[in-house]
């Protein structure tokens, strides 16, 4: 088996998977006409592809029943009172208006406390000045 055939067999595997660029298909067709081994290889790979397709189709037929079982099982999970409260809280928290209101409240809280802290510092400063005058 030549290296050239090895290369063509790689390409044949890609051709069957549908991943070979169109520009390379013609070269394979031409080679197959001259090389019996590669032509046979393609036939065998196509047969294997068909077998795999049928095999996986068979597996796939039962999937509906399986997924129905999962959905049925999900329905059996009963929500506890705690779950319901948490769900309600999450729904409220997820609301964008609530998020904006919460952000505004945080900003207002920080601003209010900042102003209070500044005022307190000014008062402290005045107290210190008074103390200094008294000491003198």
């Amino acid at each position: 088996m030549s290296n050239k055939c090895d290369n063509f067999k790689d390409k044949i595997a890609e051709l069957i998977s549908g991943t070979l660029p169109d520009s390379e298909i013609k070269a394979i067709q031409e080679h197959k006409q001259q090389c019996k081994d590669c032509a046979e290889f393609e036939q065998v790979l196509r047969a294997e592809d068909e077998l795999l397709t049928n095999l996986f189709d068979g597996f796939g037929r039962d999937l509906q029943r399986q997924q129905d079982e999962v959905i049925k099982a999900i329905g059996c999970f009963s929500s506890t009172a705690k779950d319901r409260i948490l769900t309600a809280i999450r729904t409220i928290i997820d609301n964008p208006v609530v998020k904006l209101a919460a952000a505004a409240a945080v900003i207002a809280f920080i601003t209010f406390n900042y102003v209070r802290a500044i005022n307190w510092l000014h008062e402290l400063e005045r107290f210190m000045d008074t103390c200094a005058v008294t000491m003198k």
Partner: peptide, 19 residues
């Protein structure tokens, strides 16, 4: 948020892939 129907829809969409 606890909507089971929504999760059931995800199961229908992706059970095949997970399998």
């Amino acid at each position: 948020r606890g909507q089971k129907e929504a999760y059931a829809e995800l199961v229908k969409r992706y059970y095949r892939d997970v399998f």
